[in-house]
Design a protein around this nucleic acid. Sequence first.
DNA 1: CTCATATAGTTCGATATCGCACTATATAGT
DNA 2: ACTATATAGTGCGATATCGAACTATATGAG
Lengths: 148, 148
Amino acid sequence: MPDKRLSLYFQLLNEIGIVSQLSRTLLESRMEHGMLLPHFSVLNHLIRVGDGTTPLKLANAFQVPKTSMTHTLARLVDAGFIEMRENEKDKRSKSIFITRAGRAFRDQSIQSLAPDVQALAKELSMKEVQAMLPALEHLRKILDRQRD
Amino acid sequence: MPDKRLSLYFQLLNEIGIVSQLSRTLLESRMEHGMLLPHFSVLNHLIRVGDGTTPLKLANAFQVPKTSMTHTLARLVDAGFIEMRENEKDKRSKSIFITRAGRAFRDQSIQSLAPDVQALAKELSMKEVQAMLPALEHLRKILDRQRD
DNA sequence: CTCATATAGTTCGATATCGCACTATATAGT
DNA sequence: ACTATATAGTGCGATATCGAACTATATGAG
């Protein structure tokens, strides 16, 4: 593969990395209680996709090592934003539930971020976003498949 | 702003975060010497954009805090992949140069990753990549501007 | 049923990350 | 020139991240 082609793909992933970094910093600067992006992401996921899921499924959803997810969940339990219950059917496994406080925190984080998203929306239309999403999902699925 | 609109933008950033995470893991699994994505990214940048730049400029290029860049650069110096020289004109500042070993390591990393990129290219054409890039750059610039 | 293997999650240690506070140097205002 | 402010980079401490090894439970092969 010629260098030019290779570097195009590198450029794509580099650009994605920088955007990821920027949005992470933005979110974290708006959140309270010292919560970080992974904490918010988990809470948001529990609401969007539904709770009762397991730590491993969450780790897979965010593509982080399960050991990192353990840590993130422990922090959320400490903060009172989630509950971890034993799974009676499979004693190895646990189930995660979001608490009232967790919902409140997630809602509040979104509200704190709303002005930023509004500003973003002024320059990047929903149409443009909708155009980007399928390609990104496609890319994610490819990379996900390659991981094995 | 209605929830639906808000969540579309969240979904975009979430998807970008996951792809970023996936590509990071992939790259790091292919690199030797315990180097991580930031180390590779800096070396790659020094070659693509040219060296002689400063730590602060690098921090800005990757949108990380300058204190993180200090750490990354120290690691690269230790590994013998870059050199840091004093700037005679401005004694506060330093200049970064990539070494022969740094170039070799960067080239080798790219070679190690080439098969993965090839596999990726089979499913995601250059055309698709070229279609994604402008939108991502646009998004990056908007977020970058908002940061201030 | 028993044993080998797979799976879910945690612990531990090494390193990365980053905010805050700090030093040193440069620049601007008067 | 003198002082206030801005800028480049670093040191430190708290926390996050992650690979390797571990425990506990489940599943499958015979």
